[in-house]
């Protein structure tokens, strides 16, 4: 077994975890550089493909690290143990990407909870609310430009928005129906 690969997985992703200010996607270029050029875990096109796979899967988009760790682990052990080595690499990479940043959030959250009455907290809760709404609208806008390819997709987004705002229909039903429409080739 090539222990060095696992140490590289651990150090790379725990480092990226603390560097990813503004979200996981900000460190994608650095991750690409290390995984493809420095460590030769995979080819350039494979990195692009697993990025697409991780975006398609549910859950946090940062799960591309699971697949990078998986591929690195596949090559770190004898061939008959490849899947075991791959899954070990996947779990190690995922944990390394989440835990350091998670500890930082935990520390901030503790201070936050103990500062319920502070003026600063009140200022943040009141003052940041409009900024957050603006950022949410910005991400909806940016997402719509990549997700909606033609007028039918925009129409679907528009109709779904109206349903979400004006009715109490379970959103999952709406997303499911939209998925079926996509499957049928309507959008």
């Amino acid at each position: 077994m090539n222990l060095r690969t696992y140490i590289q997985i651990l150090t790379l992703f725990s480092g990226l975890s603390l560097m990813s200010i503004g979200g996981g996607n900000t460190v994608l270029p650095e991750m690409h550089l290390k995984a493809v050029n420095d460590y030769n875990w995979m080819a350039d096109s494979q990195f692009a493909d697993i990025f697409a796979i991780s975006q398609a899967a549910p859950g946090p988009s940062i799960l591309i690290v699971t697949l990078v760790g998986y591929k690195a682990g596949l090559g770190a052990v004898p061939a008959e143990w490849a899947q075991v080595g791959g899954v070990a690499g996947a779990i190690l990479a995922t944990a390394a990407m989440m835990i350091p940043a998670g500890i930082l959030v935990y520390l901030v959250a503790r201070v936050w909870e103990s500062a319920k009455e502070s003026s600063f907290r009140k200022a943040v809760e009141k003052g940041f609310a409009p900024l957050t709404v603006g950022l949410v609208l910005a991400s909806a806008y940016v997402m719509s430009r990549t997700a909606d390819h033609d007028w039918r997709a925009y129409l679907l987004t528009g109709v779904c928005t109206l349903i979400f705002v004006f009715t109490k229909v379970n959103p999952l039903v709406v997303v499911g129906v939209a998925g079926v429409l996509g499957w049928l080739g309507v959008v």
Binding site: A56, V133, V136, L137, S139, A140, M143, S144, A147, D148, H149, A153, L156, T157, G158, V159, C160, T161, I163, F164, V165, P171, V174, V175, G176, V177, A178, G179, V180, L181, G182, W183, G185, V186, V187
Partner: peptide, 19 residues
Amino acid sequence: DILRGAAAAAVALTFAMAI
């Protein structure tokens, strides 16, 4: 194909959250 439709609705949910 499925994801294309679901993504259009997921964008809508985000718009709805902003509203």
